[in-house]
Design a protein around this nucleic acid. Structure first.
Lengths: 208, 208
DNA sequence: CTATAAATCAACACTATGTTCATTATGAGG
DNA sequence: CCTCATAATGAACATAGTGTTGATTTATAG
C-alpha cells in the first residue's frame, strides 16, 4: 500500500497545490498562510501538516516535481537534428520541447516568473530596466517590421544587462566599478557577439 | 520643527535600516520580523511603528529614497560626451555614474539583487539558466582571453533568454509557443543584433 | 467486509502583529 | 540654561498564525 497511491492522499495534495496557485494569483505569494490555504482548499488545517512541513516545504516539493520532469525531458536534439531544423527554419527541437513543457505547466511557471523579484524593489526593477532600455540603439526597435516582436528584443536587452549588474553583485563586486562600466558600454555598443570576439581592446581593460 | 530634522528620529530610522540589512544578510528576507528587527536595532518595538506601518512599508520607503536619488543623478551624457568617450575607449559617463551610485549604495543593492527570485524556485532558476547556458555557442566562451570576463558573457546570455521567457509569461503567453521557440532559436543562433536586422525570415514566423 | 491509515476536530503553547496609554528622556529653540 | 514639545519607552491588550497532540470519524485498498 503505497502512500502515493492512496486516493485520499492524491486528492488532498491536489487540493493543496490548486489552492496555493489560486491564493498566489489572488493575493501574492507573501499573503499565503496555511490557514487561508487550507480554507481555500476546503480541508482541515491539520491535513496540510500531514503532507508538508510548512509553506516553503510545499513550494520546494512542487519545485522538485517540476525539476524532475524537466530533467527527464527526452533530449531530441543531436547536432544533426539541429542542422536539419536550421535548414527548414524551424526551432531547435530541444527549445521547442522546453517551451511546450512550460506551456503545459503554465500555472506553475506563471507564478514562478510573476514572483521573480516581486518581494522587494518591484518598482526599482522597472526603473532600472527602463533606464537600460533608454540605452538601446533606437534603430533596432523602430526600423521596419521585425522578424521577432520588438517587445521581445527589449526584454532580451534589458534583462541581459540587468543580469550583468546582478552578476556583479552576486560575485561580491570583485570587478572594479570602472571595468564593469567599460564592459556594459561595450555590450551596449557592440553587442555580446562582437564584444566576445573582438580581441583588440582586451589590454585596455583595467588599465586605469 | 521638522520631523525629518529631529536627531532622535534620524537616529531611530538609521538604526532600523541598518538592522534590516544586517538581518537580511544573516537570515534572508523571509525571516525578518518587526520583533527581531527592533531587537537587533536595540530600540523599542513600538518605536518601529512610529515610523513605518510594517516591514513592507519600510522596504518601500527605502526603495523610494533610492529611486529618488537615481532619478536625480545628473545626466552627464549628451551625444557629444558619448562620442568622445567612445573615442577614448572609456565607458559612457551615464553608465559609469549609474554604477558608481550602485556601488556607493551597495548594501541596498546587494540585498536587492540577492533576493531577486530567492523566495520561490531558487534552484529551478539555476536549472533553467544552466540549460540555457548549454545552448550558448561554445567558441564564444573558450576562445582566447576575452575583452570581458567569460562569466559576464554567460550572465549576459542566460539572463537575456531567461528574461525573454519571463516576458512571455508576463504577457499572458500571447505569442504561440511555436513562435516563441522560433524567436529563441534565432536569438541563440544569430544573436539579437542579426535577429533584429535580418528581415528576410520575417514572413516565416507563425506560418505553421 | 474489514483492517489500516487518512482526514477531521478541538485544544494546546508559542510567537508575531498592531494598537493604546501612561511615563520617561531628550533635543530644538528661545 | 531652561522649558516645552515630542520622541522613545514599557507594559498590556486583542487578534491571528504556527505547529503539535490525541481522540474520533471516515474512506479506501485489498
Amino acid at each position: 500500500m503505497d502512500k502515493n497511491e492512496d486516493l485520499r492522499v492524491i486528492r488532498s495534495r491536489r487540493l493543496i497545490e490548486d489552492a496555493f496557485f489560486t491564493l498566489v494569483e489572488e493575493e501574492g505569494i507573501e499573503a499565503v498562510t496555511v490557514r487561508k490555504l487550507t480554507a481555500q482548499a476546503g480541508i482541515n488545517r491539520g491535513t496540510f501538516y500531514l503532507h508538508y512541513q510548512d509553506i516553503y516545504d510545499l513550494m520546494e516539493k512542487m519545485e522538485d516535481r517540476i525539476m524532475e520532469q524537466m530533467k527527464q525531458l527526452p533530449v531530441k536534439s543531436g547536432p544533426q537534428e539541429m542542422l536539419s531544423a536550421e535548414m527548414k527554419g524551424e526551432p531547435f527541437p530541444s527549445i521547442a520541447q522546453f517551451i511546450d513543457f512550460m506551456n503545459e505547466e503554465h500555472r506553475f511557471f506563471q507564478v514562478f516568473f510573476a514572483q521573480e523579484g516581486a518581494l522587494f524593489g518591484k518598482r526599482l526593477r522597472v526603473l532600472i530596466q527602463d533606464s537600460i532600455v533608454d540605452k538601446i540603439p533606437k534603430p533596432l526597435l523602430t526600423s521596419e517590421p521585425l522578424p521577432v516582436p520588438a517587445d521581445y528584443i527589449v526584454a532580451y536587452f534589458s534583462s541581459a544587462h540587468f543580469g550583468v549588474i546582478k552578476h556583479w553583485f552576486n560575485t561580491g563586486r570583485a570587478l572594479p566599478p570602472y571595468d564593469l562600466a567599460v564592459t556594459l558600454t561595450r555590450l551596449i555598443k557592440d553587442g555580446p557577439l562582437l564584444t566576445a570576439l573582438n580581441q583588440q581592446p582586451a589590454n585596455r581593460l583595467s588599465e586605469s
